[in-house]
């Protein structure tokens, strides 16, 4: 196909209709606790709390670079977008989040990524 992904907005990284990414992996696993929690947190923000719209979640994910869009799992993409949108909406700050992650890592044994 000549239809390349384009940062100029011609075809976004998410806009894949008509391309060919090969055989479909139909294997399934029950959602993990992490996945269920990210799903629920996001749905709370979109639904009852109205912190942001589903459109904003999609927009945040569409802005990832190709490597992240392809390599992050579905709910990894969501939780990263959740952070972006909570900060955008002034619910939490980057400083708060970074400090909490550092504290959690220390508690877990100081493991660094």
């Amino acid at each position: 196909m000549t239809d390349k992904f384009s940062p100029a907005g011609t075809r976004g990284i998410h806009d894949v209709g008509g391309l060919d990414f090969g055989a479909i992996d139909r294997s399934e696993h029950p959602l993990t606790t992490f996945e269920r929690r990210v799903d629920a947190l996001t749905m709370l923000m979109i639904g009852p709390l109205g912190v942001f719209r589903a459109d904003a979640l999609r927009r945040a994910i569409e802005a990832y670079n190709e490597a992240d869009y392809v390599n992050l799992t579905y709910y990894e993409k969501w939780v990263r977008a959740l952070r972006i949108l909570l900060v955008e909406q002034g619910v939490l700050t980057d400083e708060q989040i970074d400090a909490r992650i550092a504290a959690l890592r220390e508690k877990a044994g100081g493991v660094q990524p």
Binding site: S6, G9, T10, D55, R58, R59
Partner: peptide, 11 residues
Amino acid sequence: PAERHCRTPFY
């Protein structure tokens, strides 16, 4: 071109 967030697929 689809600037920003667009729901009209490229194809």
